[in-house]
C-alpha cells in the first residue's frame, strides 16, 4: 500500500513537472525570473545540490569500504545507483539552464582548459565511468582491491572540489574565499549521507544506526563551517537561519536522542536542507553589486538585484526531483529483480 502511495505521488510530481518543462521548452528563458544581476538561479542550486549528493554519498561509501565496515559497505550498489540518478538529474538541470541547449556538445569539442567549467565535462565522464564499474563489480560480487576504493574517493572529491572552484574563482564575489570549497565539500558529503540514510531506512537495511553516527559527525562539522562562513560574510539571511535550525540543530538533537523511528526522516531532512544552504550561498554572492549605485544606474526589467524563482522554475525543479527518484526506483528494481533471477 505504502509503495502504491509513493508511486502515485511520484507520478503526479512527474506530470506536474512535465507541464512546466513543456512550457519552458516551448516558450524559453523569458519564463524564468533570472536576470543579468542574478544569472544563476534555482536550477544551478539544484544542479550543485544533486551533484553534491551524487559525489558525497559515493565518497562516504568508498570510505566505509576502505575501513572494511561490512555493514556499511553493503550499501555500495545502492550508493552507485543513487549517484547515477542524482548525477543525471543534476546534469539535466544545468543543461536546461543553458541559453543554447543545442550547443552543449561544444563542451566536449571546443574545451577551454583555463575554464573550470571546461574541465567538468571530463570529470563527470570519468565519475560516471567509475560509477558504472562500481555497479557492475558489486552486481557480480567480485572482490575489489582497496586501490579502486581510493580511486573512487579521489574522483568523487575532485568532482566536488572542481565544482566548488567554479564558484570560488571569480574575483570580486563572496565565493572568492577559501571557505567556499570547504563548505561545498562538507555539505555535499552531508547531503549524500543524509539521503543514503533515508534510502537505507526505507529499504529496511539494518545499518541506519551506523550511518546516523557518521551523519551526526558531519552535522557538527557542517555547523562549524557554516558559522565560519557567516562570520566571514558578516551577514546572515533568514533562509540560512531557518536552515541552521531545522536542518542542522534539530537533526543533531534528534540523532543524539537516538530516536530510531525518526532516523529515516532526519536523513531526508538533512539531505534536502543542504539545497537551502547551497541556494543561499549561490544567490547571496550574486546580489553583491560591483559598484556603489550600480543597481540604480540603469533600471529596467531584467537588471534588478533581486531574485525569486518563477513558477516555471519550481515546476521544472519538481520534474528534476521526480526524474531522479524514478531513475533510482527503476534502476534499483531492475537490478534487484535481475539479481534474484540470476540466483534462481
Amino acid at each position: 500500500m505504502k509503495q502504491k502511495i509513493f508511486l502515485f505521488l511520484i507520478a503526479i510530481s512527474f506530470i506536474v513537472g512535465l507541464i512546466g518543462l513543456y512550457r519552458y521548452l516551448t516558450i524559453g528563458h523569458s519564463l524564468l525570473n533570472l536576470n543579468s544581476a542574478v544569472p544563476w538561479g534555482l536550477w544551478v542550486a539544484v544542479y550543485i545540490w544533486f551533484v553534491g549528493i551524487s559525489a558525497g554519498n559515493y565518497f562516504i561509501v568508498m570510505f566505509w569500504n576502505i575501513i572494511k565496515n561490512k555493514k556499511l559497505s553493503n550499501l555500495t550498489t545502492i550508493s552507485a545507483i543513487l549517484s547515477l540518478s542524482t548525477l543525471s538529474a543534476g546534469l539535466l538541470s544545468i543543461l536546461l539552464d543553458l541559453g543554447h541547449i543545442e550547443r552543449f556538445y561544444k563542451l566536449f569539442i571546443s574545451v577551454n582548459f583555463s575554464s573550470v567549467m571546461g574541465w567538468m565535462g571530463f570529470f563527470y565522464s570519468i565519475f560516471t565511468f567509475i560509477l558504472l564499474v562500481t555497479l557492475v563489480l558489486s552486481f557480480i560480487k567480485k572482490d575489489v582491491t582497496t586501490k579502486f576504493y581510493v580511486a573512487g574517493i579521489v574522483i568523487s572529491s575532485l568532482v566536488i572540489l572542481v565544482e566548488s572552484m567554479l564558484f570560488a574563482r571569480p574575483p570580486g564575489k563572496h565565493w572568492h574565499s577559501i571557505i567556499f570549497p570547504i563548505h561545498f565539500f562538507v555539505t555535499s558529503i552531508l547531503s549524500g549521507t543524509g539521503i543514503l540514510m533515508f534510502i537505507a531506512g526505507l529499504l529496511k537495511k539494518d545499518n541506519t544506526s551506523l550511518i546516523s553516527k557518521t551523519l551526526l559527525v558531519l552535522l557538527i562539522v557542517n555547523l562549524v563551517v557554516e558559522i565560519i562562513d557567516i562570520v566571514s560574510m558578516g551577514t546572515i539571511s533568514n533562509l540560512k537561519i531557518i536552515y541552521l535550525l531545522t536542518a542542522n540543530l534539530i537533526p543533531i538533537i534528534l540523532l543524539i536522542l537516538n530516536i530510531h523511528t525518526l532516523k529515516t526522516f532526519v536523513g531526508l531532512f538533512c539531505g534536502i536542507g543542504v539545497l537551502a544552504t547551497k541556494y543561499d550561498s549561490l544567490i547571496t554572492a550574486q546580489l553583491k553589486q560591483p559598484f556603489k549605485g550600480f543597481e540604480n544606474a540603469f533600471f529596467e526589467p531584467g537588471l534588478a538585484f533581486s531574485y525569486i524563482p518563477s513558477f516555471t522554475e519550481w515546476l521544472v525543479t519538481i520534474f528534476l526531483i521526480s526524474f531522479s527518484v524514478t531513475f533510482f526506483y527503476v534502476f534499483y528494481k531492475s537490478i534487484t529483480s535481475l539479481s534474484s533471477k540470476l540466483v534462481r
Partner: peptide
C-alpha cells in the same frame, strides 16, 4: 556561445548581461 553565463559572474565590473 552556449549561454552558460559563467562570464557574467566572472566579470568584476558587472559589464556583461544576458
Amino acid at each position: 556561445c552556449i549561454g552558460c553565463r559563467a562570464c557574467l559572474n566572472a566579470c568584476p565590473y558587472g559589464a556583461r548581461t544576458s
